[in-house]
Design a protein around this nucleic acid. Sequence first.
DNA 1: AACCCTATTTAAAATCGTTCTAAACTGCTT
DNA 2: AAGCAGTTTAGAACGATTTTAAATAGGGTT
Lengths: 139, 139
Amino acid sequence: MLDQKPNKTEDQHTDLLRQFHLRPTRQRLALADLLFNGPCRHVSAEQLRLETKNKGINMSLATIYNTLNQFTKVGLLHEINLDNNVTYFDTNTDHHHHFFDPKTNKLIDIPRDAISLNALPDAPDGHDVERVDVIIRLS
Amino acid sequence: MLDQKPNKTEDQHTDLLRQFHLRPTRQRLALADLLFNGPCRHVSAEQLRLETKNKGINMSLATIYNTLNQFTKVGLLHEINLDNNVTYFDTNTDHHHHFFDPKTNKLIDIPRDAISLNALPDAPDGHDVERVDVIIRLS
DNA sequence: AACCCTATTTAAAATCGTTCTAAACTGCTT
DNA sequence: AAGCAGTTTAGAACGATTTTAAATAGGGTT
């Protein structure tokens, strides 16, 4: 009933965006609000389009894509690609792993240290290991 | 110089396709030849379109997609999706893992037992573990 | 070999997710 | 308030993949 109250985190998001030299526009703040308030999320551009629409926020799908890509570039999000050729964005940018349910296309985070990955093979000549992703596919 | 000699594996491929109730058509045999003769491969539909074209084999891209999907459905191929929203098909259907070079979009197989995956977390309620994919992203 | 039935192939259109374009708008500095 | 660069936008364009409906080709039967 206190929805007049200004969103407590809006100023934080403004600061956050400025840190990355992104102007805190209405649209970017709206998406930051959806992405960075609650618990970690795995969302597609289309999902966010629906969420903004449902909240009465007017913004074009192109802006959603632009923003997600910018957030990804500065490290606020991580990109994940799965079976269906839809790009998902993970608000958890820590090194971690995932359960994946192909039925629902839902991802569940697995903390990094919940999986012990010892004895990794050496990277091929001329390469380094940048990251190790474990995806546990569920049925 | 013996290219008149009938492809020694064509009969094997014919048998293989019949096992899965797929008619051994000219197109499917051509793709089986490209896929299942040499060492394991990771190919996209577009790559196969080029290869068939270069060999003078006439077949539509739709057929390549149809065939790859059919082969996948019966278990002759495995699908892999990476950063670029292109579907790759892996002729190695054993449980194994991959190096991935994002620069070239190339995959390199890692034998299953080259990575020790102990202490996997339990699958969420109502689910089983179907498969575990490890992707070592290179730089 | 001719016939038939169904599976398969095909070109073309359609679809889907995503990016690009060029014009309008807006945050920020002066 | 003015101006400029950064941002948003609608719509077109794009690339990968699927669908459509019509033509073709396996493979069995006569």
